[in-house]
C-alpha cells in the first residue's frame, strides 16, 4: 500500500519538476515583458522531439553524448524562442494596443502544433531513456523522473544567481515593474526582453530533452503542459521561482493521485479545481506579492 503512494509521490514530484521548469520559463519572460508565452508548451514538446531526433540520427546515445546534447537542444530551442520573441515584441513597439501578444503567442502555439501534425501525424513519439530504471524503496523508478528533479534544482539555482547577482539579470527582473522608467535609465529594454525569451528557451529546451521519455510528445499535448505549468505558476505566485519550485511538485503529485485514484480522464478536471481553489483562497499564490485580484 505505502509503496503505491511512494510511486505516486516520486513520479509526481518528477513530473511536477517539469511543471516547475515550465513555470520558471514563464516567469522570466513575464517579469521582463509582461508576456505570458502560450507557445511555451509547444517549445517544450519541440525539446522532446529533439531527443527523439537525436536517437533517430545517432542511435541510442552514450551518456557523454547525451550530456553534450542537452546544451545543443537547449540552444536550438532558445534560437526558436528568440525568433518568436522578436516577432511577438515587434507590434508592441509601434502600437498602443499592448495585447497583441495574447493572440500572437497562441497563434504560434497553433502553428507549431499544425506543423507537428503535418510532419509527424497524430501519434505520440516514444523516446527510450538511456538510463536504466533506478531502484528506490524497493521499486524501480524511471531515471528521467529523478533527472527532472535535478534539472529543476539546477535551473532554480542558476536563475536565482543570475537575477539577483548580475546587473543584467537584475535589469531583466525589474523591467516590467516600470518599463518607461527602465528606458529612461538607459536600459536596452528590447534587447533585455529578447535575452529573457532566449533564456526561457534554454530552460524549456533542456527540460523537453531531458524529460522526453516521460512526457507525451505529440502535436496536441502542449496545452496540457502549459496549463499545468500555469497552475504551478499561480500556486507558487507569479514572478517567484522559489514558489514555482515548490508548487510544481505539489501539482505533479496531485495530478498523479488523480490519475491513479479516479482515472486519467479526470486529470484535467482535478487541475482545474486546484487552480480555481487556489485563486479563490489565495489569489497571490504562496510566494507571490502581486495579487491576481485587482480590486
Amino acid at each position: 500500500m505505502w509503496q503505491e503512494y511512494a510511486i505516486i509521490l516520486i513520479r509526481g514530484i518528477g513530473l511536477g519538476s517539469v511543471y516547475a521548469l515550465i513555470a520558471m520559463s514563464f516567469n522570466i519572460v513575464k517579469v521582463s515583458s509582461g508576456i505570458l508565452n502560450f507557445a511555451q508548451g509547444n517549445m517544450f514538446v519541440l525539446g522532446g522531439m529533439l531527443a527523439y531526433a537525436a536517437v533517430a540520427l545517432f542511435g541510442q546515445p552514450s551518456f557523454i553524448v547525451w550530456l553534450l546534447l542537452i546544451p545543443v537542444a537547449a540552444i536550438i530551442i532558445a534560437v526558436v524562442l528568440l525568433i518568436q520573441g522578436y516577432l511577438t515584441l515587434l507590434p508592441l513597439s509601434y502600437s498602443d494596443d499592448q495585447q497583441s501578444w495574447l493572440i500572437t503567442t497562441m497563434a504560434v502555439s497553433i502553428i507549431i502544433g499544425a506543423v507537428l501534425l503535418l510532419v509527424q501525424g497524430p501519434n505520440a513519439l516514444m523516446v527510450r531513456s538511456i538510463f536504466p530504471n533506478v531502484p528506490l524503496f524497493g521499486m524501480r523508478v524511471p531515471a528521467p523522473f529523478l533527472l527532472a528533479i535535478g534539472l529543476a534544482v539546477f535551473w532554480y539555482v542558476v536563475l536565482q544567481w543570475f537575477l539577483s547577482k548580475t546587473l543584467t539579470g537584475l535589469a531583466i527582473s525589474a523591467l516590467w515593474q516600470d518599463p518607461v522608467a527602465g528606458r529612461a535609465a538607459g536600459l536596452k529594454v528590447r534587447r533585455l526582453q529578447l535575452l529573457a525569451f532566449g533564456l526561457s528557451g534554454l530552460i524549456i529546451g533542456s527540460t523537453g530533452f531531458v524529460a522526453a521519455p516521460i512526457i507525451t510528445i505529440a502535436s496536441d499535448s502542449a496545452v496540457a503542459y502549459v496549463l499545468n505549468g500555469f497552475v504551478a505558476l499561480v500556486i507558487g505566485g507569479v514572478a517567484s521561482n522559489t514558489g514555482a519550485l515548490i508548487a510544481g511538485p505539489l501539482v505533479g503529485v496531485a495530478a498523479m493521485l488523480a490519475t491513479f485514484k479516479i482515472g486519467g480522464e479526470f486529470q484535467g478536471l482535478v487541475s482545474m479545481l486546484i487552480l480555481v481553489g487556489i485563486l479563490l483562497i489565495r489569489p497571490e499564490g504562496i510566494f507571490g506579492s502581486t495579487a491576481a485580484r485587482r480590486v
Binding site: 546587473l167 537584475l170 535589469a171 515593474q177 516600470d178 522608467a181 527602465g182 538607459g186 536600459l187
Partner: peptide, 17 residues
Amino acid sequence: VFPELSVFDNIRLGAVA
C-alpha cells in the same frame, strides 16, 4: 522606482547603462 527591488538594487540599476 522599481517597487519590487530593494533600495540598493534600484541604485545599482542606475549604473547599468
